[in-house]
């Protein structure tokens, strides 16, 4: 038992270290192709972390969406826009200051939070108790995530599905029309981006 907990912590720390290294490499790399590939690796590592945190449905989604579709779409965009980033100064000091201050504030905010894995944290005693204890008799499926997703929080999921539909529709509106011949035509007043 102690051994398995120790292993879990070691895997946790290892994954976190890999995530941080991947993130820093993505910031540093100027070849956008490498950046996109690293972002696929980042997603896969985070899927591993989700599994470790017992969120198997999320891990499944992240592995298929983040490492799969997302990489393909980014590569498709690179083919249309060019795969090299312009050289620029390494450190942008005002941005760095903003990020450091913001990060410090967030870390200060975590000091009051319940510790990682604390079973007495308030989040576990609001509606989660009911989902875990009653969903088997009230809804039926053994997978509580499915019960909550489709039944208890059906409105939520309906909204999300509509958002996906709308976003897909907008991409069609933006990209399905023929490409304009001139590289940089004069700007017209009406942004007529309708699909033809």
């Amino acid at each position: 038992m102690i051994g398995s907990i120790l292993t879990e912590h070691l895997i946790d720390i290892g994954l976190l270290a890999f995530l941080a290294a991947t993130g820093l490499m993505m910031l540093h790399q100027r070849s956008l192709f490498a950046v996109v590939m690293l972002s696929g690796i980042f997603s896969l590592l985070s899927a591993g972390l989700f599994t470790l945190m017992d969120a198997v449905d999320v891990a499944f989604t992240e592995a298929s969406v983040g490492a799969g579709i997302s990489t393909v779409l980014f590569l498709g965009t690179l083919a249309l826009t060019g795969a090299r980033e312009k050289r620029r100064t390494i450190w942008d000091l005002p941005a760095l200051a903003t990020v450091v201050v913001f990060g410090a504030l967030l870390m200060w905010g975590t000091l009051d939070l319940p510790h990682y894995g604390d079973p007495t944290a308030p989040i576990h005693h609001h509606v989660a108790d009911r989902y875990i204890e009653e969903s088997g008799t009230e809804v039926g499926p053994p997978n509580i995530v499915t019960s909550v997703l489709a039944s208890y929080r059906g409105f939520d999921t309906l909204g999300e599905t509509t958002v996906i539909f709308t976003a897909g529709l907008s991409v069609v509106v933006l990209l399905a029309r023929r490409r304009r011949p001139a590289a940089r035509p004069p700007r017209d007043a009406s942004p007529d981006a309708g699909a033809s």
């Binding site: 969120a55 449905d57 989660a128 997703l149 929080r153």
Partner: peptide, 20 residues
């Protein structure tokens, strides 16, 4: 299970908005 549900849908919505 609650964070799982919220984040699961957010991931798929996230890729749709990234595509946009």
């Amino acid at each position: 299970p609650l964070p799982s549900v919220l984040i699961l849908t957010a991931i798929v919505v996230g890729i749709a908005t990234t595509a946009l």
